[in-house]
Simulated scan of single mutants.
Amino acid sequence: MSPFKDLKLVFEALNQEGSYPEVRGTLSFYLNSDTTVKSISVKAKGDATVEWRNNFGVFWVDYEAYMRYFEMKQYLVATDFGDTVLRRGPHNFPFSFQIPRGIPSSFRGKNGEIVYMVEAKISRSWRWPSSVKREINFLSKDFPAIHRAMRPLSRSVDKEVGIFSKGQLQMTASVNRGVCFPGETLSAYARICNSSSKNVKPKFSLHRKIVYRVKKHTKTSDKVIFKMVGDPITPRSEVTVPCAVKIPVDAVYTLHNCQIISVEYYLKVYLDVSFAFDPEVVFPLLVVPSNLVHAQLNEEVGHI
């Protein structure tokens, strides 16, 4: 029977998102009796994996990729001086790991994941080691230049409507900024001048695009996570259509610094025109932690 009771890893959350830009924690347990140990160690590691399978009729092809971002180990009770006797009662061993800069945030998707794990192990002579492991939600500090995306975005498109109708469509679309955080609402609008002879319908859609990569092969998931459809715009009219773009509370952050997995967002504003190609404008969006957006907003206010 193991003398170790309530063996657990407790982490210290360092931000309001409940994620860990670095790892600080405590290995704790209770000893039922005095116990001799050879060593107590804690190991942290980060791995990214991608896998999917394609069916080519009579056979299947498996695609797999793997990356290890780091592996670090430290001894809380060293082995250099022989065995160590731990007295009966509660024990707490603090530890910390400085995770390397530039590695991606934790992620779990249908065909890939980025997982960071901490494992503690207690070794004893002639005994199986006692161990405990726990996954950490790591948040990278490495995001594209947020300050550049804070400004409003605006684009225009013109289209001649022919064959089954005549005239021209003009649309100018805008969004108040190109960076946001989960749970936020962005302000967008489209100003449409319908000089054609057809009814057109304005639409707004927010997309999340995940790309998994194995060498030169890719598997893409492009999902609409928000959509709004405006009222039809009659011929020979000009209308401005507003849209409150709601970012889902559970939206994962933009992921750009992993070689085998990427997560991107974009807002598409377009006109649904029957029997014609839809004119559209597309805005790339960054989804980042709320504290980064608020910090940038405060910095801009301070410069006013």
Rank of each mutant, 00 (worst) to 15 (best):
I225D: 02
Y253T: 03
H294A: 01
W126Q: 11
F107G: 08
S156V: 05
M72L: 13
E160V: 15
V61I: 12
F4K: 04
H217L: 14
D80H: 13
C193V: 12
C243A: 03
S123M: 09
R88C: 14
F204D: 01
T36G: 11
P248T: 01
G89S: 11
W128R: 02
I233W: 00
H147Q: 15
Y265G: 07
G112K: 00
R88Y: 07
V23F: 05
R236L: 01
F97R: 07
V132T: 15
K201M: 15
V252A: 14
I261C: 08
K216F: 13
V118C: 05
S96E: 09
R108V: 13
E299F: 07
K141F: 03
V229C: 02
R155P: 07
F164M: 11
R127V: 14
T172S: 14
I210R: 03
A44T: 09
R68A: 10
F277G: 09
G102Q: 00
D6F: 06
P104A: 12
E12Y: 14
F97A: 12
Y212H: 06
Y75G: 03
N298P: 00
Y63C: 07
N92L: 02
I163C: 12
N194F: 00
S41W: 12
D250R: 04
V85A: 10
E119G: 04
L206T: 14
F29N: 12
R101H: 13
V161P: 06
K201I: 13
D222R: 02
Y75N: 08
E71P: 04
E280P: 02
Y265D: 10
E22L: 13
N194K: 00
L14D: 15
R53H: 09
S123L: 01
T234R: 15
A251K: 00
K201Q: 15
K5Y: 06
Y270W: 10
C258N: 14
R148K: 02
R24C: 04
Q98T: 08
L169H: 01
